[in-house]
Design a binder for these strands. Structure first.
Length: 447
RNA sequence: GGUUCCUUAGCCAAGUGGUAAGGCAAUUGACUGCAACUCAAUCACCAUCGGUUCGAUUCCGAUAGGAACCUCCA
């Protein structure tokens, strides 16, 4: 089955062709661990998790890498403020992030490189760029990348380096040869710093990612590079420029960017306080709820989060939860096993996901299956084999979307309760049957 | 100023050159001891104006409104 992805490099849908048949190399820019992440940071997590699960379902072997940026000005600032070292800060927020990842039911990347692990490689990398004339040192001790030296700078984001309006809103560093030149090595006097032939300091963000890619994949070209839309410029553009300079590679064949999450129709922003921390959302609501909200909209479109939308999503999710639980209960009450059945998702389901990750239509297919199964359950003699088939098929689909929908595992006590419930009902002992119904309802067995 | 993008029913949201998926909400009906759950039915002139076309919501242009990036940012 062909997989079509919207390649930000050419701004069009393209059929995915892996570098190595049957294998996918995918790098997703991870968080800078200076604080708790907000729900927006979780969108790429969900998008690329679904993509990864799709690839796996289609038989690909996926090598998925996502970094932690653990050297950054904001981390240094925070460390100084709290009078601890940078490692302490990074560790704290990496752990918090991983807790969020778990609650979102996302697969962990195969590797999670950090800047500190690959510093030497970054220093070597920058040294080579200087030697080859792609970078220069300024009087202040910073090392900048020389964008004029690479062809096609701007090919990803369509910026024009000869456009002189760049400084209209931003004060241009007079040390730069071109306003688009970006820092590879920041000369620093405070906080964590490292020694390099070109002075003490720390690497720039764009260099960090490009080097981590080379170091973890051991390749200079990967299949997929992903991240939020805002990363397209300057981050990804600059990563690509460095790869062009260092090894004449465009770094990745497919550049995927997810849209933003807005909060109450406004961009999330720390300065205005319009922000929803992931950990707060996940404790107030749930991982499946956030995932559902994100899956309901195409990944390149913006998603707005508001009380109304959360409410709506809760209703929709509840419908799926009830359906799945009812089928699961019926199957078990019939004495059939609910475990370890393998099922493949329907072809149409995989096809719609293979069409640029159309999760919205994927959810529609799940709804169709649920509706049919609900209909089967209403028959006077529901066909068990068909229900088993539908149940495991739905499970297979939910699993690819990463929607963790809980269903009850019935105990012998539950079986007895259900019998008692039916008995009480047929005896017209409604007081008793209502009592049992309440218990079974709490256990997610009856609704 | 430059560069991208969006506008589909009360709400969320797919999608297509041949007269619009799905879900939520609502209304009606069926089922039920009652309720819940579920099922069925009903519910859209696809922002506006031009153009291309036998035919456009879908392509092109303009207008209106909205958003993002260009500065750390998923």
């Amino acid at each position: 089955m062909d997989i079509k992805l919207f390649n930000g490099l050419h701004d069009r849908l393209e059929t995915f062709k892996p570098i190595q048949p049957g294998k996918v190399t995918m790098y997703v820019c991870g968080p800078t661990v200076y604080d708790y992440v907000h729900i927006g940071n979780l969108r790429p997590l969900v998008v690329f998790d679904v993509l990864k699960k799709l690839f796996i379902a289609l038989g690909y072997q996926v090598h998925h890498v996502s970094n932690y940026t653990d050297i950054d000005d904001r981390i240094i600032e925070k460390a100084q403020k709290e009078k601890v070292d940078e490692v302490t800060i990074a560790k704290r927020y990496i752990q918090a992030y991983q807790e969020d990842v778990a609650k979102m039911n996302a697969l962990l990347p195969d590797q999670t490189p950090t800047v500190t692990e690959h510093l030497q490689a970054m220093i070597t990398f920058i040294g080579k760029l200087i030697k080859d004339g792609f970078a220069y040192k300024t009087p202040s001790g910073d090392v900048f990348f020389r964008v004029n030296k690479v062809k096609n700078y701007g090919q990803l984001s369509h910026v024009d380096i000869h456009e002189n309006k760049i400084g209209a809103r931003v004060e241009v560093n007079p040390d730069k040869e071109n306003p688009f030149d970006f820092v590879l090595w920041k000369h620093t006097t405070q906080g964590i710093k490292f020694s390099a032939p070109f002075g003490e300091g720390r690497p720039g963000w764009h260099t960090e990612c490009v080097v981590m890619i080379k170091e973890t994949f051991k390749q200079t070209l990967i299949d997929i590079h992903g991240g939020g839309f805002d990363l397209k410029f300057p981050h990804h553009e600059n990563e690509m420029a460095q790869a062009q300079a260092a090894y004449q590679s465009r770094l990745a064949n497919y550049w995927l960017h997810n849209g933003f999450i807005n909060l109450n129709a406004e961009k999330m922003s720390k300065s205005t306080g319009n922000i929803f921390l992931a950990k707060d959302f996940l404790s107030t609501y749930s991982g499946p709820l956030l995932r559902y909200v994100l899956l309901a909209t195409h990944y390149r479109m913006p998603v707005n989060i508001s009380p109304l939308i959360i409410d709506n999503a809760q209703q929709e999710l509840k419908k799926i939860q009830i359906g799945v639980a009812q089928i699961a209960s019926y199957i078990q009450l019939q004495g059939a096993s609910i475990n370890n059945q393998k099922a493949t998702p329907p072809e149409s389901f995989l096809a719609t996901l293979a069409d640029d990750i159309n999760t919205s239509n994927a959810l529609t297919i799940i709804h169709q299956y649920l509706k049919e199964a609900n209909g089967l359950l209403r028959q006077s003699h529901p066909p068990l084999d068909m229900l088993l088939n539908r149940f495991f098929t739905i499970q297979a689909m939910l699993s690819i979307l990463g929607l963790a929908i809980e269903f009850p595992i019935l105990t012998t006590e539950d079986h007895q309760l259900y019998k008692d419930y039916l008995q009480a009902k047929s005896n017209q002992n409604f007081g008793r049957s209502d009592e049992i119904r309440k218990i079974l309802h709490q256990r997610n067995i009856l609704f």
